[in-house]
Amino acid sequence: MPSPVSSSAAPTLGLLLRGLRARNGWTLKEMSARSGIPVSTLSKVEHDRLTLTYDKLQQLSRRLGMRMSELFAEDGDEGEAPVTARRSIGDLAHSVRVETPNYDYLYLCTELRRKRMIPVLAKVRARTLDQFGPLVRHAGEEYFFVVSGRVVVHTEFYDPVTLDTGQSMYIDSTMGHAYLVADGCDEAEILGVMASGDDELMRSLLDIHEEQRLRSAAMPAL
Rank of each mutant, 00 (worst) to 15 (best):
M169F: 07
Y179D: 09
L15T: 10
A81F: 10
W26I: 02
D75Q: 15
L121I: 09
D91I: 10
L201G: 01
H47G: 13
T174C: 08
S69N: 14
V193F: 08
K44Q: 08
A73P: 03
K123M: 10
F144N: 03
N102C: 05
M169T: 06
D130Y: 03
R125G: 00
M68K: 00
E210M: 11
P2F: 12
G197D: 13
S35C: 07
V136P: 01
V147F: 02
E99K: 12
R34I: 15
H154D: 05
M66K: 07
D199I: 14
L15E: 12
V83L: 11
D104W: 08
R49C: 07
P4W: 03
G90H: 14
E111T: 04
A188D: 03
T128F: 04
G19Q: 12
C185Q: 10
T155W: 10
L214M: 11
Y54V: 04
V181H: 02
T155E: 11
D207T: 06
R125K: 14
V136C: 09
E156G: 14
R18N: 09
K29T: 14
S196F: 06
E99A: 12
E70M: 08
E187A: 04
L92Q: 05
K29A: 15
L17R: 00
R63S: 10
D199C: 15
H209N: 10
E187H: 06
R63D: 00
M175I: 11
R18K: 15
T27G: 06
T100N: 01
T155C: 15
E211K: 12
E74W: 13
M194F: 09
S7Y: 09
A9K: 12
G90E: 11
K44V: 05
D183K: 13
R127E: 03
Q131L: 07
A195D: 02
T27E: 07
R34Q: 11
R114L: 15
Q212E: 12
A10F: 04
C185Y: 05
D172Y: 07
S61F: 03
L201W: 02
H138A: 10
R97W: 07
F144Y: 10
